[in-house]
Design a protein around this nucleic acid. Structure first.
Length: 549
RNA sequence: GCGCAGUUAGCUCAGUUGGAUAGAGCGUUGGCCUCCGGAGCCAAAGGUCGCAGGUUCGAUUCCUGCACUGCGCGCCA
């Protein structure tokens, strides 16, 4: 990051001196082969067209300007079709360590997103049953995206939308009510197919009966209501506990019912009608989403008078913007992708720009046990719920797996593999690197080893040490990219790479057994910086960084 | 039928504004513990980047068509 920033400045200056404008498609990044240098710039290649000279000639002119432009630059070479390969001075690379030491937990953070208020809504599972593993992936992604955006300087609020209104809630109350009647011997007909059949419904019914033995004597409607209120609270408490156990935090829990009861949905519909966005037809109220590119218009109020989810979703999203968020990010299961165009159409009708609304689609999770698929349907498989899975594999392993793949590809989650402490399960590889760093620090302190203040950082010139310094310098850029792309998996992959080089350095370059104490101390500080960076990265994923394993 | 994703090494996957000889781990094969944690390290083998065209100095990347896989297409939630 420091290196990229410096080289960008120098190259922009050189380009300007030569009378050219900064190329829009300029890219500065590490070259394919590290032997070529620290960074490669394609300036000459992209300038070639507008300048009308051949790339290598342009590269030559830029290289002349670059040489001697800064003490930090040790070498500039022209390669291939016209790449500029730049090598920095050892002193420049080594100067990164004091910076990391000073910044500590803030190393890698930025103020890029300053002043931008973002809301991320995720999980938002209907409170009709416990969270399953698919919700877990959405939870991990949403939570991590919040952490990454905050790290990039955004003001972020994490929210859970509670669908506690509508037909499903009535079904929940009815399901519990029927179980209550069964338990008290008042009903023996088969349990209806359109009710929730999970065992947890029976548990809730039994619990409630324990508290209110006369429940079954109530009139049906009152009984269903009582069952609903109790069941909703029970299930939602369970969801909150699961999320807490998973290290997932929400700032706001927003109730759909509160929106409906305050008349906000009706008010939104009135507004849409007044604006001509909504119209009556066939006894129903429709929203002209086709105007904004949707396939067909969508119903807001059905001819029986009841509201669709879409209606309250519009009111809900209107409320989000009214609260001052300039960007709204929804994390949805990929099976809802068909809902995106109409929601986007609605957002545009509300007068918001399309980019103010983003959806992260999280693909399904395929739960496996030793390569064989575990059914996750209503027939309760053994590891149906998130809580079961977490009890089996632990939160760190689960989160890391969820976050190490990009969210829009399907994920195979094999319980047997995730439990293993092997490279099939990268979380241990990364955590082990951190534990190793801490072990070396402990050992050095306990056994009169080198101390940080003895270090001569100029001695860090071995190939492996340089690799580490280069990689550490990339972390802030990786964090920024992850924020920009809403891609937590960038972090996971970076951490794997950093851990890999740390393990290699550890194997060949000792701290305690270094040729002399000043070198050992320098390595100790390098290790410490790696440990700090691993911690910072793991924190963005919500994964712990153990000091011993 | 239409739409959205995906297709990269035996397996699981990275590769985002088009760039140099396409990467990682697992698995396979062969090495490394009198030495800070072997949950580790080193090395080798392994690829028509689904197929076919197009755009250009250059395509895994962009465009078009096709194939296969998954998902979605209700006055459901």
């Amino acid at each position: 990051m420091r290196a990229v920033r410096l080289l960008t400045e120098l190259l922009d200056a050189a380009t300007a001196e030569l009378g050219w404008s900064k190329p829009a498609k300029a890219v500065i990044e590490p070259p394919k082969d590290k032997k070529l240098g620290d960074l490669a710039a394609n300036y000459a290649l992209v300038l070639a067209k507008e300048v009308g000279k051949n790339p290598r000639e342009i590269a030559g002119l830029l290289a002349e300007k670059l040489k001697g432009a800064s003490e930090a630059i040790a070498a500039v070479e022209i390669a291939g079709p016209g790449f500029l390969n730049v090598t920095f001075s050892p002193a420049f690379r080594q100067a990164l360590l004091p910076i990391i030491e000073a910044q500590g937990a803030d190393f890698g953070s930025s103020t890029r997103g300053k002043g931008q208020k973002i809301q991320v809504e995720f999980v938002s599972a209907n409170p009709t049953g416990p969270l399953h593993i698919g919700h877990g992936r959405g939870a991990a992604v949403g939570d991590s995206v919040c952490r990454i955006l905050r790290f990039a300087g955004h003001e972020v609020e994490a929210e859970y939308y509670i669908n506690d209104a509508g037909r499903q809630m009535r079904t929940l109350g009815l399901s519990i009510w029927l179980r209550v009647l069964e338990l008290t011997g008042k009903r023996s007909e088969p349990f209806p197919d359109d009710c929730y059949k999970g065992k947890y419904i029976v548990d809730i019914a039994r619990e409630l009966l324990g508290k209110e033995p006369d429940l079954a004597e109530r009139a049906e409607e009152a009984g269903i209501d009582a069952c609903f209120e109790y069941g909703l609270k029970e299930i939602f408490d369970g969801i909150k506990k699961d999320l807490r156990d998973f290290g997932v935090h929400h700032d706001v829990w927003f109730s759909e019912r509160s929106l409906v009861q305050a008349g906000r949905v009706e008010k939104t519909l009135e507004q849409l009608k007044a604006d001509g966005q909504a119209f009556e037809a066939d006894g129903a109220l429709w929203f002209r989403t086709t105007e904004a590119g949707d396939d067909k218009d969508r119903v807001l109020r059905k001819s029986d008078g009841s509201l669709t989810y879409f209606a309250s979703d519009i009111a809900y999203h209107a409320d989000k913007y009214a609260r001052g968020f300039t960007r709204v990010i929804d994390v949805w299961g990929a099976d809802h992708h068909g809902y995106v165009p109409r929601m986007r159409a609605a957002i545009e009708s509300l007068g918001r720009k399309p980019e103010a609304f983003e959806v992260i689609l999280v693909q399904l999770v395929n739960l496996l046990q030793g390569g064989k698929q575990i059914a996750m349907s209503t027939r309760a498989g053994k590891f149906e719920t998130l809580a079961d899975v977490l009890a089996e594999v632990g939160t760190d392993a689960a989160r890391f797996i969820f976050l190490s793949r990009k969210s829009d590809s399907k994920l195979d989650f094999d319980l047997q593999l995730v439990k293993q402490r092997t490279m099939d399960n990268p979380v241990y590889y990364v955590q082990y690197a951190h534990a190793r760093v801490e072990a070396v620090k402990r050992r050095a302190a306990e056994q009169n080893g080198p101390t940080p203040n003895e270090a001569d950082l100029a001695l860090l010139t071995a190939e492996e040490e340089v690799d580490l310094l280069r990689l550490l310098d990339r972390f802030p850029q990786v964090a920024l990219d992850a924020a920009e792309q809403l891609a937590p998996h960038f972090i996971g992959h970076y951490l794997m790479e950093l851990a890999g080089i740390l393990h290699r350095v550890y194997a060949v370059l000792p701290v305690m057994g270094a040729e002399n104490r000043t070198l050992g101390a320098a390595r100790l500080r390098l290790f410490d910086a790696v440990g700090q960076t691993l911690r910072n990265g793991l924190a963005l994923l919500g994964v712990s960084a153990p000091t011993s394993m």
